[in-house]
Design a protein around this nucleic acid. Structure first.
Lengths: 338, 338
DNA sequence: CTGTTAGCGCGTTCAG
DNA sequence: CTGAACGCGCTAACAG
């Protein structure tokens, strides 16, 4: 555990000179560089980032707080963030809030303690107070994937409302009228937006879905399974399902299989968020895919520009479009029904 | 950005007293605690971990370096590590080496700079020098998932050789003789072990597979696709495939579909590493599943015990068994062939 | 181009 | 039970 002083002694210079060579800052001769580098190599010296961070009040570290790292959508987000951050010389710390406000608060507190330079946050339900906490501690934050009302922060997210609207439009064009919504958690903007898009498309078609057709749950496979079961046990039975995310869709497929119903012959199914090709043995699901990587990259660039003191004074909200990917699960046009 | 001194001033005590209250160390009266806590709340004081780490020479941080965070197997590993680490009051930093020795080196260097207390490492091919680097810098390491020859470190991994052996045995019992191996990268112990298990089972059955049946590639979907294509274009054609991991299996399914071959009717397929239920619309693949979470947890416990100065002086190698999960892809017994 | 001084925020050490 | 002094390893500010 050699220190900068050990290196300085061995190279016959002052510690600050070593610091300059390491950081390529200020002036020094080639001869100085050579002797310092030789000493560093000989001692196997590794700089201490804690000390550096303490002194500089900057750690060159960002954090990404998200709600479910097991979801490939967020794995992709993580990659997008890391790519841009690394290019700019930043390290990224990843944290999993598990959709729990308490865990989120715990992590944000930790990240402030760790003196991260900035945070990318996928907020759980209703987090304005968590965001205020960051602001009180001078930690810039960019909100990712979800809208937060009155957030004093930049937001980068996708247009869930339009995505859901398109999916329902597709189903309507195929002849479906009884379309069930397997929704996400109330209080989470993406879930609310997808529900709103569903309702708008239905209303424009002059349809008022029975209340049993509109479910809300959590973004998990189990919840998708349970919501699908509930819908199937009620009357009227739907002819199509809209799943609010990929895990919900998978749970719905399970429930339909169990009930002896086939997709799309008996029930059409469309979902939100694609699964990556690496994971798809049988690409099958018609979805509104969100550009996870682009969203993450834009958010990271925005955060970095904030750290550099650039960008417009006003907070921005950037909204990216979703992409409709047609596969088998949405099925063929069905005969007129009602 | 209040400091411990600001708190001390407001509470009318010395900074060290504040430190004691925060860390619950040493003695202080209830009255002192109350006034300090009041001051902390009022100022919104958050301790600075850089300063604390610099002083204590411990950061209560572990790191997990793995090779592919997009693979659900490693996502599960990450969860296992985090669970145990958090319970013990440690934070975990995750790093992705992408199976690149250079990236691994870069991350290990960074982690030493960050003064992490210990590292869990899924090593890329041939990393004894990277491990020596950690030892030179007094950073305890536990190797995860893969064997490293002569590593001066504990190792926790699964029994890939036996897992592959079982899978091939299964195929042999079903009547297959021409079994192709879609292998992983040469130089990675899990890939080598799976190949060895394959060869042992084949040899015990008195079979010497044609060299075209034994492929090696990388642990990716693309590589699985390419290896499957190559095998299919050679003579003799196999009746069964063993894929060395989940991504390779998915690539093989794609190649088989393209060639108009159905699994398992035309070709049986077995693989390594399960996909989690959350991601499986159609559970289908017969696999040797590794206990990713248990492995990760054991490794983390071992690392923590090393940090506490406990455990046997000798380095340990813990090897966990795999579990054979039977599904459709391995198919029914086939008529005698050759 | 190089060095001296000082201090980032905290906790160890030792003294009350 | 409480506090003063000191230093962890590094670099900003200011000399020279």
């Amino acid at each position: 555990m050699a220190t900068i002083r050990d290196v300085a002694k061995k190279a016959g210079v002052a510690p600050i000179t070593v610091s300059r060579v390491i950081n390529n800052s200020g002036y020094f001769s080639d001869a100085t560089r050579a002797s310092v580098e030789a000493a560093i190599a000989e001692l196997g010296y590794v700089p201490n980032r804690l000390a550096r961070g303490l002194r500089q009040k900057r750690t060159h570290t960002l954090a990404l707080v998200l709600t479910d790292i097991t979801n490939p959508f967020f794995t992709t987000v993580a990659r997008g963030v890391e790519d841009i951050a690394n290019e700019a010389g930043y390290t990224v710390t990843f944290c999993n809030s598990d959709e729990s406000l308490e865990k989120e608060q715990k992590y944000l507190d930790l990240l402030v303690q760790l003196q991260v330079d900035g945070i990318l946050l996928v907020p759980t339900a209703g987090t304005p107070e968590n965001i205020r906490f960051l602001q009180k501690n001078d930690t810039p934050v960019v909100i990712l994937d979800r809208h937060v009302a009155d957030a004093q922060a930049d937001i980068v997210r996708c247009d869930s409302e339009a995505g859901a609207y398109q999916l329902v439009q597709l189903l309507l064009e195929l002849g479906h009228r009884r379309i069930a919504m397997l929704g996400g958690p109330e209080g989470i903007s993406t879930a609310a937006d997808r529900l709103a898009g569903y309702r708008r498309a239905m209303a424009e078609a002059g349809l008022a879905p029975a209340s049993t057709l509109v479910q809300s749950g959590s973004f998990t496979q189990l919840s998708g399974y349970q919501m699908a079961k509930k819908v199937l046990s009620a009357t009227p039975q739907p002819t199509a399902f809209l799943a609010a995310n990929n895990f919900i869709a998978i749970g719905a497929v399970k429930a339909l299989q169990e009930s002896g119903l086939s997709v799309p012959d008996d029930i059409a199914l469309v979902g939100f968020d694609d699964l990556p090709p690496t994971l798809m043995m049988f690409p099958f699901l018609t979805v509104a895919a969100q550009p996870a990587c682009e969203m993450a990259q834009q958010a990271t660039k925005l955060l970095l520009s904030r750290l550099a003191g650039e960008g417009p004074a006003q907070y921005q909200e950037i909204i990216l479009p979703t992409e409709l990917i047609l596969r088998q699960s949405s099925g063929q046009p069905i005969p007129l029904s009602r």
